[in-house]
Design a protein around this nucleic acid. Structure first.
Length: 212
DNA sequence: GGGGGGATTCGG
DNA sequence: CGAATCCCCCCG
């Protein structure tokens, strides 16, 4: 057999139909593709709708978050802190808000182009370790908001090379959620591939209870 | 119409 | 730790 690597297929919409917290861990080890630049999704976070105080959609639809209400498979891109773009895979039924934030990729190909876009980054494992970093590396900007990730003709797509998601992903609280989000800040809606090289920030050590 | 805060990142 | 810098929310 050839050494060209496993065949890449598109992702079925059925994978994305559920709630964000159910869909998120199933996106681990899929590929995010923009032209020649390809990265493996190794860290994600789930964001819901009206019941998730940490979600952009908590207070309903706005111009910014409109894509979150779209059909599953749409790309939701927003500008964070006026500087960095962040990419989400929209999930759940059309009309309901739900999305999975892609927080880190392991670079697979197009690494030279990624480095060019991220002039500061040197090491491969930092290239796409963070939601803003990976968008910069892949060239995903606001113009990509609303893209259909399941359409092979799109500039940005999701792909599956046959690597299954981990049976036991790392699980933790979402990053950067302020106290104003209330109990939603403690939801264990962050997931990652154990042992992945590119993780945006460490997960707290599991296996011990706090001293409460 | 104004002010505060953010799903971030980098440099000092 | 603070700056960069835009969108959105809430209050008046």
């Amino acid at each position: 057999m050839g050494v060209g690597g496993p065949q890449r297929t598109t992702v079925d919409e059925a994978l994305l139909r559920g709630d964000a917290s159910d869909v998120a861990p199933r996106l681990l080890n899929l590929l995010l593709v923009h032209g020649q630049e390809v990265g493996r999704i190794v860290e994600v976070e789930a964001y819901g709708g009206a019941r998730d105080a940490a979600s952009h959609a908590y207070r309903g639809r706005t111009r910014r978050n409109a894509s979150m209400f779209g059909p599953p498979g749409v790309l939701y891109v927003y500008l964070s802190y006026g500087l960095h773009h962040c990419a989400n895979v929209v999930c759940g039924a059309e009309g309901t808000a739900g999305a999975v934030l892609v927080r880190a990729l392991d670079p697979v190909s197009g690494i030279d182009a990624m480095r060019r876009r991220r002039s500061g980054a040197t090491s491969k494992e930092r290239l796409c370790a963070g939601p803003g970093r990976l968008c910069a590396a892949l060239g995903i900007g606001g113009d990509c908001d609303g893209t259909d990730l399941l359409d092979v003709r799109s500039a940005v797509t999701l792909a599956d090379d046959g690597t299954a998601p981990p049976l036991e992903p790392l699980v933790g609280e979402r990053v950067g959620i302020g106290l104003r989000a209330g109990p939603a800040a403690r939801l264990q809606w962050r997931f990652a591939v154990p042992g992945a090289r590119s993780i945006s920030r460490p997960f707290p050590r599991a296996g011990r209870d706090p001293l409460s």
